[in-house]
Every structure is written in structure tokens, then in C-alpha cells.
Nucleic acid binder design. Sequence first.
DNA 1: CTGTGACCTTATTG
DNA 2: ACAATAAGGTCAC
Length: 325
Amino acid sequence: MSRMWNKIPFKSSELQLTGTLNGGQSFRWNFDITEKTWTGIFAKTVWKLQQENNCLKYQVLGTLLEKSNKETEIFEMLLKNYFRLDVDLGNYYKKWSERDQFFKSACVQFYGIRMLAQEPVENLFSFICSQNNHISRISTMIEKLCKHYGEKICEVDSVPYYAFPDVEKLSQLEVESHLRELGFGYRAKFIKKSANQIVQWGGKKWFGSLKDMKYTEAKAELMKLCGIGPKVADCICLMSLNHLEALPVDTHVYQIAAQNYLPHLKGKRSVTEKVYSEIGDHFRSLYGDMAGWAHTVLFCADLKKFQQADSITVEQGNQRKKKKK
DNA sequence: CTGTGACCTTATTG
DNA sequence: ACAATAAGGTCAC
């Protein structure tokens, strides 16, 4: 059965799917090189996306959301929210470019990088997996989480798609040993224990309260979880709790900062708490209240797979990943 | 408060 | 080929 494309009009210059979906924010999107489409999952729904003529086109391949006569409206609303289409990104790129020459030159090929509004649970456990790890392994680990603990949404061409699991599922007793068997290493304990803590503190309600807190309070709260330090806490604040001034300082960002902004950091062997906040504060004073978003554009520009890479190389990278079974 | 090493596993590097 | 290294860190001294 062939599906129809739905269309959301949106300037292509302000939405770049490649950098946004494959730039290390979410790990659940895959590019199909022949169809030139992106397939991915959020909100218990399997989406296929494509860009054309200033339109974002989408199909829903399957969903666990309840039936409704307003389905089209709901799906459209979910997408608009996920990509934050209400944010006029052109204005912000202009502002960041005016304030920073380095940003100005970096952003040319990296137009339209949008900060996704992700779901907190997926975001939190994905970035526990991300520590001391590379993107390819992070992706396979997250797929394992979904396959073993998530609800099946549908099957397309005999490929099953799973929703990201609930916290309750991940807090079960046997999760730690099981995840170790599946190759999660020491992150297995972090996942199980954090899930447990979150359930005890109220689950969904707890995440809701983090959105209402100030950024620094929300970050401190997150860092009480097992396996969540300053960097992952900032990722969660930025990517799913709407605290856009949060600025995760990882090895890449540290290098960028030492090379281009804060040369006195060059000799340092490790990022201490003090250096960490110095870097964050520097970028916040430079870019303002959405510094984390600007930082994501720089991070994208720094990612190896995007360097001197047109989309072809990126696509080949995905192909290889898929073949590996 | 700062510095250092261990920690799981594996894709990439030389 | 095949070992060493680094990979979007965190925790415990």
C-alpha cells in the first residue's frame, strides 16, 4: 500500500535534516540513500521525512497513539514541536554571527541546524549511553534498549520498529545484568539505578518539575542521578527540558574553546568543574540565552563525519552501518 | 578544591 | 593484519 506524503510548508534554508537528525542529538534516525528519506521514531510513532521545495514532507508508518479524527493535526503539531519550527532560526544565526566571527564562518555549510525538542526519558538514557563512547556504538546500544524493553510499534517491510521504553521497564531488577550481557559495560548499572531513582521520585511528574525549574536547579537535580555528571546533565537540560542556555562541554567543545576562544586552557589535561563552567559562561556571554543551540551548530561543524563532507559521505557512512547487521 | 586512574566495549587508527 | 588508542564522561579516592 502506498502512502501519501503530508506537507508542512517550511523554508529549507532554516531546516537541515542531515545536520539536525544525524548530528548527535538523537540517535534513532536513519537515512535511506535511494529514497532520500529519513526514518525515525519519537512520540511512540514511526516517521518518514523528506524535504522538497520549501516543504517538510512526512508519512506516519505506524503509531501507538490512540485513534483520533484530528490525527493530521496531531501529527503536524508533534513535528512542529519536535523541530521547534516556531523558532525563527535565521534571526538567531544572524545574531550569533554578528557576535562571533568564528561562528560566522563555521555556520555557512551548517545552516538550518535545529535544536530538537526531544522526550526527556529517551534523551536521558541515550546520553548515559553516550559517555566515553562513539556515536556508532551509542546507536546500537539504544536500539537494543528499545528492542528488549520498548513496545513494538509496527513492522514495515518485515522490519520491526520499537518505541523507547518507559522508565518503569528500565528500573526492573534484572536489567543491570541483562544489559551487561548485551554489551553495555559499566553503563548497565547507571541505567538501572537512575531508572530506579526516577521512578521513586515520581517519574513523569519529576521530569515536568525539571522543566519548570531554573536551568541551574534542574541541572543540580539531574546530577543526583547515578551516572549523570555535569556534561550529560547539560545535554538533558538543553535537548529535552527546554533550558536552551545549557551548554554541554565535551572533548570536542573543550578543543574548540581552547583553540579559538580561551587559549589559556590549551595545556590543561582534564576538564575540571571550574574550567567546565568557565567555558559554558564564556559561550553564554557571547551568544546569550540560547547559547546551547549555537554551541550545537559549532559541535556539528566539528563532527568528523561532516568535515569537508557533502551529504554523500554521510550517506555512505549510514549505508555501511546498516549492512553490518 | 584539583588531579588521577579505573571503568566496558569497539570502531578507528597507525 | 593486529595492537593501541580514543570515543560527546563519571565516580572514587
